[in-house]
Write a protein that binds this DNA or RNA. Structure first.
Lengths: 216, 216
DNA sequence: TGCTGTGAAGTGCTTCACAGCG
DNA sequence: CGCTGTGAAGCACTTCACAGCA
């Protein structure tokens, strides 16, 4: 019928690895390394050298044959490819323990991800000042961010309130969501939801341990 | 040469989905639903019905043909398959913002994941009491947990101290690690490391947004 | 010579399609 | 009849292997 522009479809796994490459390259840059070739970079990221080269090939040719990659310019190339070389405005919904920890995590601001509005539906929290921002009522989200262009919504509510938080974000025109609540979210097609769920990882570890114990 | 017992190799993706199924089944159970078939369950988790059936098939036959799955007994079956139907003892390394948020996150304890020892290498924090536990020096980790069997280590240090934290855990015989620090960890073969990295997810969202904006 | 960039081969996960059974 | 459990087919990502270039 019709198909994506599909000049190139980029696997999601590639996108996630690019973030790892950024990490590794930042370390190399900090250590004063100027050139790196695909295999050592791959080692540092726990992947295969071809994988690195193929991942990069989706975005262009950044290396020099026989030499390798210039650390700084590759770093720049990847951040540009990902689109993270700019400022991002975010709204946070749910100022419990985790929400506050995220507000205090200055690495977000450092990397251009700025939380500029915070919401909660607990009447005791609404009106409180945190990090120079007033906690607003989640139901008024749409009104309060009418004038600013929020790029990303962060959900740090308890699971049972996650869907409502998401719906509020959607109706305010925010379709990119980082969800820390351990709950699946029903979202319109155009939305992008990334899940950060500690328990998924703990469960996976628990399984590994159980499995390992069985074999000895 | 030689091969794994390989009675069945279970894809890592399956393990991660099982945690999602647990979530969904808990919701269904809370809503009083007694029976569910693979397709609605799959919908709630954002996957395909066959996927659910295949994932479950790795562990046994839990359904009734023509009917579906009993919500409660499937829930039990999955938690047993994952090995999460017991108590876990964990040690936390790094009591910054995130570490404290995790200590306060009572859902961990609720699900049997108990933090029973906390460490930091900041002299100003060592000796402080948090949640009824004294913060110990990370370098003495091995000594302090000699008598208790810690199952899982949680790393919530800044990235530059993550490897040292991990090495301390390894030398104390803890080979299952949940790492919140945005850094890759070099670990022995037998170790299991799960990474929770907010920035990977933010970067992925940033990419999605950038990509979407390009097409309109 | 050394390392990138890339078609081709390999691998493993997902989806299909249907037999099997309550 | 409906839904599970599962071999077979399909698809997507990873790895190999080497041509191409500095």
């Amino acid at each position: 019928m019709f198909s994506e522009p599909k000049s190139k479809h980029i696997p999601r796994a590639t996108i996630h690895r690019l973030a790892t490459y950024v990490q590794a390259l930042e370390n190399l840059a900090r250590d004063g390394m100027e050139i790196v070739s695909s295999n050592p970079l791959a080692d540092a990221c726990g992947v295969n050298g071809s994988q690195v080269r193929k991942d990069l090939a989706y975005f262009g040719e950044f290396g020099v044959r026989g030499v390798g990659y210039n650390v700084k310019s590759l770093l720049l190339a990847i951040t540009q490819a990902l689109g993270v070389d700019r400022e991002w405005k975010m709204a946070l919904v749910g100022v419990g323990n985790l929400g506050r920890a995220i507000l205090n995590h200055h690495e977000f601001r450092l990397r251009g991800f700025n939380i500029i509005a915070i919401f909660d539906c607990d009447p005791f929290k609404i009106g409180e000042i945190m990090h120079g921002m007033e906690v607003r009522c989640t139901d008024d989200l749409k009104t309060h961010i009418r004038d600013v262009n929020i790029d990303i919504g962060i959900i740090t509510t308890p699971p049972e309130r996650a869907q409502r938080a998401a719906d509020n974000l959607f109706s305010a025109g925010i379709y990119s969501i980082l969800n820390f609540a351990p709950a699946r979210i029903k979202a319109p097609e155009i939305a992008h939801v990334e899940y950060v769920d500690f328990f998924h990882h703990l469960y996976a570890l628990a399984f590994d341990v159980t499995k390992t114990d069985m074999h000895e």
